[in-house]
């Protein structure tokens, strides 16, 4: 019981910490990591409740739910990263996100994607080239 509560409680603390970081920090990658931490916290809780004492085998259902949840989290993370990279590629800063671009019939004004080498230094990115 107490070990179970410690593990699940740690999950709840992770959830709260992730939430705090998500809401307070501006940088998108920090937000993304934060939301993954919060998600990890929720998965912790699921793992904790699968425990049914030292003798009985654990409940497989929460385990399966966590597996499903992880895949969902991975998918969402991938999409957020792709959107983020696309946003970085767009040159001009938006004065206001509410302002629609002038013409729907004109072709997209997105500039060609920058090569990785042009990326501003210091921005963490999963595809930072090596070698």
């Amino acid at each position: 019981m107490s070990a179970q509560f410690l593990y699940g409680g740690a999950g709840i603390l992770l959830f709260a910490l992730g939430l705090w970081s998500l809401l307070v920090h501006e940088a998108l990658l920090r937000k993304l990591i934060a939301i993954n931490i919060a998600g990890g916290g929720v998965f912790h809780v699921f793992i904790a409740i699968a425990y049914r004492g030292d003798t009985a085998p654990p409940d497989p259902v929460p385990h399966a739910l966590v597996l499903t949840g992880i895949v969902v989290a991975v998918s969402a993370t991938a999409l957020v990263l792709a959107l983020h990279r696309r946003l970085e590629q767009a040159e001009e800063p938006a004065a206001d996100a509410e302002v629609l671009s002038e013409s729907a019939s004109a072709s997209s004004a997105a500039p060609p994607p920058r090569t990785p080498a042009e990326r501003t230094p210091g921005t963490p990115h999963p595809e930072t080239p090596h070698g």
Binding site: L19, L22, I35, I49, L83, A90, S108, A109
Partner: peptide, 30 residues
């Protein structure tokens, strides 16, 4: 559309949606 405003807005939408469903999931766990 690939426009900057659209991407920025939908990035936020995606994150908000993730936050919402995560909170929902915690309720399910309880």
């Amino acid at each position: 559309t690939g426009k900057r405003e659209a991407i920025a807005a939908n990035l936020r939408y995606l994150l908000v949606g993730l936050l919402g469903s995560l909170t929902y999931l915690l309720g399910v766990a309880l």
